[in-house]
């Protein structure tokens, strides 16, 4: 099982255990998550709106300042404002997360569709291939890719995308197989539609919504992995205002300047919780719609 499949399983259970037909009002957690998501999207799209400063602007003489009114989250070793850097860093994290998810999901769709639609030989081959990939648990596959192509944001994004792909592929395959055996698809088969017509007209529309949920849940995972790679010095390079890279720089000064690593980490956690809560909420709503 992959991290993604666990997330999907949890979301699935949460959705099943909630009672159908319960009031559609928005819960407190969903409300907070919605506001946070809005905040993060604004910060990613128009960071200047919320933090007018320069995320790379140095001011050596005001280095290592603890949180004050002037610097809400303190300053780093070169006197850069951490709040400004975190807000400007949102676009990196969300973009990396989205891009990695797109790569993983895209590959997952291709592999999953091949396995789910093309008969036993292809299914067997793809499954063996996925099994091999699953033998590199967690970050191991991403680490291998990074070693080959060298560190950097682009490689890290691709590495995370590739290492999440097997998870997506397996879920999509399972979904295709279950949709394929539903009554209306069987009816369409009886009516003489070709395999690909059925795929486009009937199966894909029925798997799209779950895919959206899956992507929302997966983006959180992708962000953590990308940040972990940056933290290990293999992703975004300093002085880029990427959260994992900021945390990595902060680790050196952890005994004297805790704020340098606390706040970027806090934003990573908030982003992931937001993605999880929203993903599950959408999941539940779509099932009960």
């Amino acid at each position: 099982m992959s991290d993604l499949e666990v997330q999907a399983e949890l979301s699935d259970r949460a959705a099943r255990s909630s009672q159908p037909g319960r009031p559609r009002r928005i819960g407190a957690a969903e409300g907070v998550a919605g506001v946070l998501a809005l905040f993060l999207v604004v910060a990613a799209a128009w960071p200047q709106l919320l933090a007018p400063g320069d995320p790379l602007g140095i001011d050596p003489l005001s280095a290592f300042q603890p949180p004050t009114l002037a610097h809400g989250f303190g300053t780093d070793e070169s006197g850069r404002d951490i709040y400004t850097r975190i807000l400007h860093g949102t676009q990196y994290s969300l973009l990396i997360g989205a891009a990695a998810t797109a790569i993983g999901l895209g590959l997952g769709i291709v592999l999953g569709t091949l396995a789910g639609m093309l008969g036993r030989v292809v299914d067997f081959t793809v499954n063996r291939f996925l099994e091999v990939l699953f033998a590199f648990p967690g970050l191991l596959l991403a680490l291998l890719i990074i070693v080959i192509y060298g560190p950097g944001v682009v490689t890290a994004t691709i590495a995370v995308g590739l290492s999440t792909a097997p998870g997506y592929a397996r879920i999509i395959r399972a979904q295709l197989i279950s949709v394929r055996s539903t009554a209306f698809v069987e009816a369409a088969t009886v009516l003489g539609r070709t395999r690909w017509q059925i795929l486009l007209r009937h199966i894909l529309p029925n798997t799209l919504a779950p895919l959206f949920v899956l992507a929302t849940l997966g983006i959180g995972q992708a962000i953590v992995w990308a940040a972990t790679l940056s933290y290990l010095g293999l992703g975004a390079e300093p002085p880029t205002a990427e959260w994992g890279a900021m945390l990595s720089a902060g680790r050196t000064y952890i005994t004297s300047a805790w704020w340098m690593s606390f706040f970027p980490g806090l934003f990573i956690v908030l982003t992931i919780v937001t993605a999880t809560v929203l993903g599950r909420s959408i999941d539940r709503r779509m099932r009960h719609a």
Binding site: E77, S78, P238, T252
Partner: peptide, 19 residues
């Protein structure tokens, strides 16, 4: 070289980059 330059030195380079 991240093996040969300590973090503070890497930050010196970043500041030289900025100036």
């Amino acid at each position: 070289s991240t093996n040969q330059s300590i973090p503070a030195e890497q930050s010196v380079f970043e500041q030289i980059q900025a100036t």
